[in-house]
Nucleic acid binder design. Structure first.
Length: 273
DNA sequence: AGTGCGACCCGAACGC
DNA sequence: TGCGTTCGGGTCGCAC
């Protein structure tokens, strides 16, 4: 499943291949994936050149002269840049270029979405409108985070998943960040202290940096699947684990906000004792 | 405004 | 063994 570090990697790899390519045809095999006007999506990109590719949170944005193509891979979305071939199973969108090659979007669960908007509408007419701060943004300070948390009764686990506050943390990294910060995922957000905000931010950066390193090692060549999982699974300390690596207590699993949440009840107490 | 939750998907994992 | 059920993952949109 592509997390922020993998989306970053996918973006960098796609940039090497796609910049300055002109789109000649857009084939859509699963219409519901397109969240803006379908006919515009299929027609407006023809003869547009890809000028840049950017990442905002977990979103990919392909910029052409006039348009911004916004793509979210959700859990299983992958891009393949290859010679033109028949679309394979689970491939829902294929972009054909003037060099005879194609960009194929594959998504087994059909959870991914795409939007096509005029470039100046990117931050007004797409889900990017309310995106919060990047984890590495200098503006992400303990004061900023504390201010966002102070009026919320939702569990800290849930609020860290809210992309309008920090963009890029998913369910897995959320658990890891709280474990390293020794904060219970059940804690009401308004009880989190400024020092704990500091800890959350530091650990989020550390964990994402490490994951970017791991994600970077998995890309073998541009012909292979882009966005394959890195080897960050090997580095997980709490998510999917059975035993706490620090105190050896059994790791517990709970549903918080509908999400599977792994935590150590000993290292991540709800309150001091 | 903040909160809660179903909808969107389907292969894998699970239960019987 | 085979069949039916549950689960998960991120985000949106709607109801309260």
């Amino acid at each position: 499943m592509p997390e922020l570090p993998e989306v970053e990697t996918v973006k960098n790899v796609l940039k090497k291949d796609l910049i300055n390519l002109k789109i000649k045809k857009v084939n859509v095999y699963y219409k519901d994936m397109i969240k803006t006007d379908y006919n515009e999506f299929v027609n407006n990109l023809i003869n547009e050149e890809i000028l840049d590719i950017k990442r905002y949170g977990k979103w990919l944005v392909f910029e052409t002269g006039k348009y911004a193509l916004v793509s979210h891979l959700r859990m299983e979305g992958k891009y393949f840049y290859t010679d033109k071939i028949e679309p394979q199973k689970h491939e829902h969108i294929v972009f054909e270029f003037d060099n005879g090659k194609v960009l194929r979007y594959k998504d087994v669960r059909k959870f991914g979405v795409m939007y096509l908007v005029k470039k100046d509408k990117l931050f007004t007419d797409t889900p990017l409108v309310n995106l919060g701060l990047e984890p590495f943004d200098k503006k992400l300070t303990s004061s900023y985070l504390l201010d966002k948390l102070k009026n919320k009764t939702l569990p800290i686990k849930t609020v860290l998943l809210d992309q309008e506050i920090i963009t890029g943390l998913g369910n897995i990294y959320d658990d890891e960040v709280l474990f390293k910060s020794r904060i219970s995922p059940f804690r009401a957000s308004c009880t989190i202290t400024k020092d704990e905000c500091e800890s959350i931010i530091k650990n989020a950066k550390d964990i994402l940096n490490e994951a970017i390193k791991c994600g970077g090692t998995t890309i073998r060549s541009y012909t292979s699947s882009l966005g394959v999982s890195g080897n960050y699974q090997d580095k997980l300390l709490v998510h999917t684990k059975k035993e706490c690596s620090i105190c050896k207590s059994p790791i517990k699993v709970a549903k918080i906000g509908g999400r599977s949440t792994y935590y150590c009840p000993h290292c991540q107490k709800v309150s001091d004792e």
